[in-house]
Design a protein around this nucleic acid. Structure first.
Length: 917
RNA sequence: GGGCGCAUAGCUCAGUUGGUUAGAGCGCUACAUUCACAUUGUAGAGGCCAUGGGUUCAAGUCCUAUUGCGCCCACCA
């Protein structure tokens, strides 16, 4: 045993065991008719990702669930993978080639994409290795990537299906445009943040009378170059006489009209609003309604374009400054007032979004949302904690169409083709229709030679031309992620020419049918709209079924000041650094033990010491047991060797405590209360098993019974600890098994042995603990040295307790360091003793020398007054007629019992006090 | 503008359907190092459960208002 060091070193165990698990393929799952499936849906991390604490928390929770269910005997599948993360990955690779002085345009689309794949080959598995470091027991042979050939087929198939169903359309709308990434973004990808800005009041002169102005307020003066009207509320008396008049737009000198629309808020600004239909969603609506001109004054990169006149090629914010200066010079700037506004920001690069008029592809969401709302309303899908249900439903009810086209290169290219010939004839027909939308031109406009097809068609189906080219855009990354629960099973399956599934496809389909719907999705709140809601919608649309039954939303990992961890703030705690310093088990345990359901997690590096210390405690307790273990005990069965009634009190106690704890842990794990389960495990092992049990049995550790029980508890504890701390549990598991044992992860989860739960033994043992603690207190009071033994007399007030003490005197002698223990037959205080009380037992500690009587009396007095306070409460309750009438019977009984106990204890203390005099 | 969360020990937080004297970890104090473990043990100090009002026999827990902090959503020029 000397070869086991006193310090647990995770570095010597963790990689070793992970490799073994992987080599032996222990994480694999396949359909098994004897078992019930359990499947978690992992949020596939970005291929550009590096492990942060959010991942660590998220994946630890999932791994606990998976390992727990695997041990419960469920066929447990964790399908791992990565997400191609269109914009993020493209940005990373663009940065990389920028170091070579290259832009993606220099390389061209094909070569650039080759570079991305190359990059992915080199760096894309970083996050996978890191997940392995974390102990994630994913079925790695199933590793998927959203750009895999098979997966891409699903994505394209879905696009075509939705288009054919009329749920995908193309149109010109104001969308969120990131001038830096130069692509459209969905609403979810453009979160709003508050900005300290100004409200600028501009004077627009009337054409008829240039001395007269209408004053408009705007936060974005640079867009005035694209103004095509000024709007006022029709009820606004201030402006009634001006409606219909012509204004001269300053700087550009364009003639624009004053229009009236109820949308205008009379209270805001001056009550007159400049209308820029091509640069603002509200103005766009006004423009449509009033048939205004749409003047786009910006290039896609945020610089002003040819319609901006003198300001062409200036950046939008630079143009703002210059325009303001020019207006000021022309005395057309009335005033500037401070104003907070909230503006959309690109979720990838944080650039301020430009509302931009452009032609994009959209998914109609309302029809998709319907079943997804129903399922959650009916409780078929449950959110944990429940409050997210409301957030989800609220968003779903107000869902907007989803802009899915992105003007980047890395991603699934739209399965959309255009026929040049048809497009041209559409244009000419439109022109001939002179902007009047006839029925025919409207139809042509819809078609415009658009062909949506899984593969590139050889000829145009409308006109037979072969001049066909593919849309340049790619799909939103989330348009592939939302298919994850079933696209990872290679849905839709390959069919033969006769529309029959091939043998291979049948096998795959059987897998999907076995594992789908999956069990749990574990994710962070910010992903609800991006991914969770959309997966629910796609599940119903394409599988006809919900994708998962439970959604567990964990909190956000923050630093100790409550700030989100981010690179820019420099407050990141790197999980890998923690793993190197303290070990994976320590990281996992610490994280879990502070993650209350759905609450944010506040972290500091020191938190991980708790996990490390716990691992070390487990290590040393196991060492101790191994040192004292006579022979392997694993074959022995408790029930065969000992009947319950033949077990000693402490053994009955610890077994009972183990199963009581296990019962609570099971309940917590089933209810997503991981922190409570972890803390129960911690408290049981450290304080009950180590602090009390092992100390209690030390003197008689070699008895057959003690050998067996301590072994059994350790062995079962390790199994329960395994989902939380997979590595150390595996390591010790192999140390305590002499044979070539199989992995602990394949062991069954201990089942509750109800008959072993023994509340009476728990109460009795805890009474003994109380006596020991009281004696220890007395020893400290008279400053007895720790190693010195003392004489103690006990007076039990009942026969039952007398026999309990008699039978367990050895324990008291041992842990309270007693020389001579005497059980008094009479209720008389022996001479030269100080006293204490533990429920029905009077405790006397003999001493030689002088006693500080005053101090003793004070101590007793304090105790009495504490007890009296609580007694008063009880008396007033019990004398309250309303309480007696309304409180349930068991509460009243309990109250009475504890009142009687208090009275007895106080009496005894008072007697002692008198005897002291 | 709408919605959500949080406020309990010096710090970070637990606290199930209301029911004995409100818990843990860290930190702090005292003592202990031939002892499986000082990454330890024993003992201890430390709480008007944010504030006001209400419901109830009984409130940290339920309702309501207020204050402070944090977050989410929204077409507030």
């Amino acid at each position: 045993m000397n070869d086991i060091p006193t310090r647990y070193d995770p570095r010597k165990t963790e990689d070793k065991w992970y490799k073994l698990w992987e080599d032996e393929n222990l994480f694999a799952a396949k359909p098994n008719s004897d078992k019930k499936p359990f499947c978690v849906v992992i949020p596939p991390p970005n291929v550009t990702g590096i492990l942060h604490m959010g991942h660590a928390l998220n994946n630890t929770i999932q791994d606990i669930l998976i390992r727990y269910h695997r041990m419960l005997g469920d066929e447990s599948l964790w399908m791992p993978g990565t997400d191609h993360a269109g914009i993020a990955t493209q940005n990373v690779v663009e940065k990389a080639i920028a170091k070579e002085g290259l832009k993606r345009q220099d390389l061209g689309r094909e070569k650039f994409i080759q570079r991305v794949w190359l990059w992915r080959e080199q760096y894309g598995s970083t996050i996978i290795h890191q997940l392995k470091k974390l102990g994630a027991s994913c079925d790695w042979q199933r590793l998927r990537f959203t750009m895999d050939e098979e997966y891409s087929k699903s994505v394209i198939d879905v696009f075509v299906k939705l288009y054919e169903k009329g749920l995908i359309y193309r149109g010109s709308y104001i969308i969120n445009w990131c001038p830096r990434c130069q692509t459209a973004l969905s609403d979810e990808e453009a979160p709003h943040h508050e900005l300290q800005s100004n409200l600028y009041y501009l004077r627009y002169p009337l054409k008829d009378n240039p001395q007269e102005f209408i004053i408009v307020a705007t936060t974005r003066p640079e867009t005035m170059l694209g103004d095509t009207a000024v709007a006022v509320n029709p009820k606004d008396r201030r402006y009634k006489h001006l409606v219909g008049k012509i204004l001269i737009l300053p700087l550009v000198k364009r003639e624009i009209r004053i229009i009236a629309d109820p949308m205008v808020d009379m209270e805001f600004g001056t009550g007159a609003v400049k209308v820029t239909p091509a640069h603002d969603p509200n103005d766009y609506a006004l423009g449509k309604k009033h048939g205004l001109e749409f003047v786009n004054v910006m290039h896609p990169d945020g610089k002003m374009n040819e319609f901006a006149g003198d300001y062409q090629d200036m950046d939008r914010f630079e143009a703002r400054e210059v325009i303001l200066e020019d207006l000021l010079e022309q005395k057309l700037l009335e005033k500037i007032t401070p104003h907070t506004l909230s503006a959309g920001h690109c979720y990838r690069c944080h650039t301020i979004i430009e509302p931009y008029l452009s032609k994009q592809w959209f998914v109609k969401m309302k029809p998709l949302a319907k079943p997804a709302i129903e399922a959650v309303k009916k409780g078929k899908i449950k959110f944990h904690p429940d409050r997210w249900t409301k957030v989800y439903l609220n968003w779903m009810k107000n869902i907007q169409d989803w802009c899915i086209s992105r003007q980047i290169w890395w991603g699934h290219r739209l399965p959309v083709y255009y026929c040049k010939n048809c497009q041209q004839s559409a244009i000419s027909k439109q022109q001939s229709a002179k902007n009047e939308l006839t029925a025919e031109s409207r139809k042509l406009k819809a078609e415009e030679g658009v062909i949506v097809s899984k593969i590139k068609p050889a000829k145009c189906p409308y006109c037979g031309s072969n001049e066909i080219y593919q849309d340049e855009d790619v799909l939103d990354t989330w348009f592939s992620s939302w298919l994850w629960p079933f696209a990872t099973f290679y849905w839709p399956f390959q069919q033969s020419a006769k529309n029959e599934l091939t043998a291979e496809s049948n096998k795959l389909k059987a897998e999907l049918e076995y594992f789908y719907p999956t069990s749990v999705l574990v994710t962070a709140p910010e992903i609800i709209f991006f991914w969770v809601a959309r997966m629910i919608m796609s599940g119903f649309e394409f599988m006809g079924k919900l994708p998962f039954k439970d959604v567990y939303i964990h909190g956000t990992v923050r630093d100790i000041e409550g700030k989100k961890m981010s690179k820019s703030l420099g407050n990141i705690i790197d999980p890998l650094e923690i793993i190197n310093k303290y070990g994976t088990d320590a990281l996992r345990f610490s994280l879990i033990s502070i993650t209350a359901e759905g609450q944010d997690v506040f972290l500091s590096k020191e938190r991980f010491e708790q996990g490390r210390n716990f691992a070390n405690k487990i290590w040393n307790a196991s060492r101790f047991i191994l040192m004292n273990l006579e022979s392997p005990q694993d074959k022995a069965d408790l029930c065969v060797f000992f009947k319950k009634e033949n077990l000693s009190l402490v053994n009955r106690w610890i077994l009972s405590r183990f199963y009581s704890t296990l019962k609570a842990i099971n309940k917590d794990l089933d209810n997503f209360k991981f922190n409570e389960a972890a803390n129960l495990l911690y408290g049981f092992f450290w304080h009950e098993f180590c602090d009390w049990y092992l100390e209690l049995i030390k003197p008689e550790i070699k008895t057959k019974q003690n050998q067996l029980v301590m072994y059994k508890i350790l062995e079962k504890f390790l199994r329960v600890a395994h989902p939380f701390m997979p590595f150390i549990s595996e390591e010790i598991w192999h140390l305590i098994r002499n044979e070539q044992a199989s992995s602990i992860m394949l062991q069954p989860w201990p089942h509750i042995q109800e008959e072993i739960i023994d509340k009476k033994a728990e109460i009795e043992t805890e009474l003994l603990f109380k006596i020991i603690s009281e004696i220890r207190n007395l020893r400290i009071a008279i400053e007895v040295k720790p190693e010195q033994r003392v004489n103690v007399s006990l007076y039990p007030h009942t026969k039952a307790i007398a026999s309990l003490l008699e039978q367990n005197s050895a324990l008291l002698i041992n842990l309270a360091k007693i020389e001579k223990l005497e059980l008094l037959k009479k209720n008389l205080r022996p001479d030269a003793t100080i006293t204490s009380v533990a429920e029905d037992i009077d405790i006397y500690l003999h001493f030689s020398g002088l006693l500080d009587i005053a101090a003793e009396q004070q101590k007793i007095k304090d105790k009495i007054s504490l007890l009296e306070k609580s007694l008063n409460g009880k008396n007033s309750r019990l004398s309250n007629k309303e309480f007696m009438k309304n409180a349930p019977e068991d509460i009243i009984v309990k109250e009475k019992e504890s009142r009687d106990k208090l009275i007895a204890e106080i009496k005894r203390l008072e007697k002692m006090q008198n005897e002291l005099c």
